[in-house]
């Protein structure tokens, strides 16, 4: 499981990094999306990988911490997803505005001569 997850994060981050360095603004935004997916998975994995363990504790009774998984990274990843989703949406608007102003989708607003 660890190997598959780390391979997945690695592929997402590698393709995201490559796309972010491309000259087209659409490639940049797709790259940023992929990067944020990779980072979100990374945050999630920092709570250690467990199968069949709930993050929510019962209200009463004896609690055995080893039977549960760490809930904090799951809360963090939710926040991170919301924030990166919102900022990516904003970036999309700016990208379209830039396309409207300059007539090109190059990140510098003009094609290389």
């Amino acid at each position: 499981m660890e190997l598959i997850l780390s391979l997945g994060i690695g592929i997402l981050v590698a393709s995201g990094t490559w796309l972010v360095m491309r000259p087209r603004s659409f490639q940049v935004i797709v790259g940023l999306c992929l990067l944020s997916y990779g980072v979100n998975l990374f945050i999630f994995s920092m709570g250690r990988l467990r199968t069949a363990a709930a993050p929510i504790l019962p209200k009463s009774g004896e609690i055995d911490p080893t039977a549960f998984t760490d809930p904090i990274p799951q809360a963090l990843v939710l926040t991170a997803i919301v924030i990166s989703f919102a900022t990516t949406a904003l970036f999309l608007v700016v990208l379209l505005a830039s396309r409207g102003f300059t007539g090109t989708d190059h990140v510098d607003g003009k094609e290389r001569q």
Binding site: V28, T87, V94, S98, V107, D108
Partner: peptide, 9 residues
């Protein structure tokens, strides 16, 4: 808008 795009990215 152009500088803003760089800034946001």
């Amino acid at each position: 808008v152009r500088s803003g795009m760089h800034y946001i990215a």
